[in-house]
Design a protein around this nucleic acid. Sequence first.
DNA 1: CTATTGATGTCATCTGATGACATGGGATTG
DNA 2: CAATCCCATGTCATCAGATGACATCAATAG
Lengths: 188, 188
Amino acid sequence: MGRWEPGASGRLREAALALYLERGFEQTMVADIAERAGVTARTFFRYFGDKREVLFDGSSELEERSLAALEAAPATASALDAVSAALDAAAETIGDNRDLARARQRVITANASLRERELIKLTSMSAAVAGGLRQRGIGDAEASLAAETGIAVFRVAFERWVNAAEDRDFGDVIHETLTQLRTLTAAS
Amino acid sequence: MGRWEPGASGRLREAALALYLERGFEQTMVADIAERAGVTARTFFRYFGDKREVLFDGSSELEERSLAALEAAPATASALDAVSAALDAAAETIGDNRDLARARQRVITANASLRERELIKLTSMSAAVAGGLRQRGIGDAEASLAAETGIAVFRVAFERWVNAAEDRDFGDVIHETLTQLRTLTAAS
DNA sequence: CTATTGATGTCATCTGATGACATGGGATTG
DNA sequence: CAATCCCATGTCATCAGATGACATCAATAG
């Protein structure tokens, strides 16, 4: 391959997270990250579109797995049931390493522009889920509403799980949140 | 007051929206906006924190009015009812000029970084609504879930209203969406 | 051995953003 | 009326993020 140490993108990811944790996102310059990873800043931008994206690499994988679960749900499942299956898959993907999730989330929560990026990733996920629902024959309106609702549940559940004192299973927290949603909307 | 034509921030807002519509957001430089408004770029950044913020000025007013409606809701109202009242207020604030909303939305939808900014504004709104619900004695978990759900309804409803062929009342669309949500979550 | 390829470096440049300081017209005050 | 202050704005300098154009060099194919 190349003449340099392989795995540049991985090193950049690690270096970025470490530095963002040490000094904060804004206080970290791309040149610093690149230096720690043993490349130049120009190379950083070849791997990641911008300074924030380096923290959101896995999101496409998350989206793919969730979509796969959505498609695999039985045809008889309701819109919300299918969304629930997608959420389970998401939980399984993320739920393995809570420490990493927490570190990442600490960095993101501390910075507005990172929160922005996180939100748009979730929105992309929402759009994808809505598309998956439509392919299951669900109408446009119901599809987007169910997808948005699913994302809302995910957001709330993730925040609970990450900040929980005890070590809970992410999937359980999601189901609990979903149940709470049903209660909430049922009450008149 | 100053020695120059007053109303600089208003002129900057108008100039920005016009230019974003004409050439697109990224193709418009801050210096262009400033020039059209008769000030310098430095002045632009005195009024608006960044190039995107100029499109989101009214969001604080929207938040305030919605919060006021939330607080004004009867004490007996459920969490979702209170949220519904807040959404009504939001609809009333926005619903007057659909053309402006549509122009703004066209610009925002066309640009990823503007969509990011819009999302974080909605999240800020969500947090504020959750806070308002907590002040009504609703528990943390239920408050944030109800708020997030409300935002989801708002997003879906706004998108429908703005893109609708006919000229519908925004409040009506919101109620319709809310009803649909209840149906959705009720089905087992 | 030579050509090709692909990841990386180097250089130049643009734009967004921000701090420090200057300026001058209107408002205030004696 | 004149001295003075206030403050919105201008001017200047500088930095960091981002991107295009082109050079470079090791591995690998043929």
